[in-house]
């Protein structure tokens, strides 16, 4: 396993190594983006880094989900109130890690990432990333205003419905295929 991993790294192109570096560094930087208001505990950073290493080595593994999910959970614990500016770079870094992992997962180690594919995903990433500052502006605009009663309960209901629909869609797709 170790030999095959070393062999895969030796055969990697420079572009793919760069993408792996993005996958490795971006989640940790997303944690650090909360500074100076919130400082993540060093054990938390170490755990994220360990998961990021697994994510960078095996972009299709559950390490990726765990790593990105951990960062999201830490942000939920750290920033209970307000909309810090640091959330924007954090969101963009998580997006970059995910897109880099998608590009790496298109083929086996050593498969060069073609320029058209790279440009396509840069465009897609940019389009998706536009939602982050827009949402931040919206959040800043409504921050501090009185909340309608039951808004968070309704939000939670919506979230559950979305999750159920998404999970159903994925499982139906699997059965059909």
């Amino acid at each position: 396993m170790r030999e095959s991993g070393r062999h895969a790294l030796v055969n990697e192109t420079r572009g793919r190594l760069l993408l792996r570096a993005v996958v490795l560094v971006a989640p940790v930087l997303a944690l650090e983006a909360a500074r100076p208001d919130d400082v993540p505990h060093r054990w938390f950073v170490a755990l994220t880094l360990a998961l990021a290493v697994g994510f960078a080595a095996m972009p299709e593994s559950p390490f990726g989900t765990a790593c990105l999910g951990l960062v999201v959970i830490w942000w939920a614990l750290a920033s209970a109130n307000g909309v810090p500016v640091g959330a924007i770079p954090a969101a963009l870094l998580l997006l970059a890690a995910h897109v880099a992992a998608v590009l790496l997962a298109y083929g086996p180690p050593g498969l060069p990432i073609g320029t058209p594919v790279l440009l396509l995903w840069l465009r897609r990433g940019a389009v998706v990333a536009v939602a982050v500052p827009l949402l931040w502006l919206l959040a800043v605009a409504v921050d501090g205003q009185p909340e309608p009663p039951g808004i968070w309960v309704a939000g939670l209901g919506c979230a559950i419905v979305i999750c159920v629909v998404a999970a159903t869609a994925v499982s139906t797709g699997q059965e059909k295929a």
Binding site: V72, A76, N81, V83, A87, A91, L94, D143, W152
Partner: peptide, 14 residues
């Protein structure tokens, strides 16, 4: 939703 934190929604939007 649980933590009533819009910043987390920001992370999940993409």
């Amino acid at each position: 939703v649980v933590s009533a934190s819009p910043a987390v929604l920001l992370l999940g939007a993409p």
